[in-house]
Amino acid sequence: MGRRTTRTPSVRVELTDSGPRLHRRPDTVAVEEPLEIRVDGESLSTTMRTPGDDFDLALGWLLGERAISDAEAVAAMRHCTDLDESGRPTFNVVEVSLAPGARLAPGVSARRSYTSSACGICGTESIEAVMHGDVPDLHADDSSVAPEVLAGLVETMREHQASFDRTGGVHAAALFTADGELLCLREDIGRHNAVDKVVGWAAREVGRIGRAPADRTGLPHVLLVSGRAGFELVQKCVVAGIPVMAAVSAPSSLAVDLAERASLTLVGFLRPPTFTVYSGQYRLGLG
């Protein structure tokens, strides 16, 4: 498996009254490498990611793009034996084999995409497109989260961001229960990748994520992200059927519009003791 961090030479510059002072030292940076996702031999996506949890990333991406309906559609996943210039395996290709009778959703092949680590490329590009078809009905979800519990999630997530502590250059996504129990945390150089890794984990380990809330009894339902809440992250949350999403930073206007349309509880600027609610405040017992 590829490294998540690596060491590289660097020069730290300190400005002093007598002029710049240079400190030459090795620094730890996050690894960024491509991951190609193939389904039954067909290449569907290439994303720049931090190596690790690649199977969860592939599964989460397939679910987020609604290429498959649930985790049961996947029979197996494996790394292809691709090699770098030195002949060493890179683990940069995941081959997904569908279960007997399972098929990719129509039009998925036509949406083949390249995704940078800076921003996700959505297969669907409008709120109407996201809400069209078989997406979980969050309006029917009556779960609730206490504001005090929500405020405490940031500290819990921060305590588990090991790669960020080493590099300062990766995002985090974390899945919690309503009482604040951390179930899964993933880090990646791409915000969308971190979310896909969490969704993929939940689909495998918890099961039934992405279906209607009535079928999700006992599933975790709070997603926290370390950065901003952009449209593509809210889209992934809605498609996964997670009714509460919180972000340490700001949402975008389109993210708020989608959250309101989908009845997603969206919280931004979660920086205890304050946070801002943009939609679905009734799940927080705030009226």
Rank of each mutant, 00 (worst) to 15 (best):
149 V>T: 15
5 T>D: 02
158 R>W: 03
239 V>C: 05
39 V>K: 08
222 V>L: 04
4 R>S: 09
59 L>I: 10
200 G>M: 01
79 H>D: 05
249 S>I: 10
34 P>T: 03
14 E>A: 10
110 A>L: 13
167 T>E: 02
182 L>F: 03
176 F>K: 05
120 G>V: 12
55 F>S: 10
287 G>C: 02
66 R>G: 00
206 V>W: 11
9 P>R: 01
244 V>I: 15
48 M>R: 09
95 E>L: 12
94 V>K: 04
48 M>G: 08
211 R>C: 14
183 L>T: 07
28 T>I: 14
169 G>L: 13
244 V>M: 02
268 G>A: 11
277 V>C: 14
173 A>M: 04
135 V>L: 02
155 E>Y: 07
125 E>D: 12
140 A>T: 12
111 R>H: 12
252 S>K: 03
135 V>Y: 06
214 A>K: 13
33 E>H: 11
71 A>S: 09
268 G>M: 01
96 V>N: 00
95 E>G: 09
150 L>M: 00
14 E>Y: 09
127 I>K: 04
210 G>V: 10
29 V>N: 01
269 F>N: 14
76 A>P: 09
238 V>N: 00
57 L>E: 12
150 L>S: 02
181 E>M: 06
163 S>V: 15
106 P>N: 06
62 L>V: 07
2 G>V: 07
267 V>F: 02
9 P>T: 00
181 E>N: 10
91 F>M: 04
267 V>L: 06
32 E>H: 08
33 E>V: 15
212 A>W: 08
72 E>G: 14
151 A>Y: 05
42 E>A: 11
24 R>L: 14
115 T>F: 10
73 A>I: 08
201 W>S: 00
134 D>L: 05
36 E>M: 13
57 L>V: 08
188 D>H: 06
278 Y>C: 03
75 A>E: 15
252 S>C: 01
268 G>T: 12
282 Y>W: 13
273 P>Q: 05
138 L>T: 07
79 H>T: 02
282 Y>M: 11
223 L>F: 02
37 I>T: 05
18 S>Y: 09
271 R>L: 13
54 D>V: 04
271 R>H: 10
38 R>P: 03
171 H>K: 00
217 T>P: 08
235 Q>N: 12
152 G>T: 05
137 D>G: 11
110 A>G: 08
204 R>C: 02
120 G>L: 15
97 S>F: 03
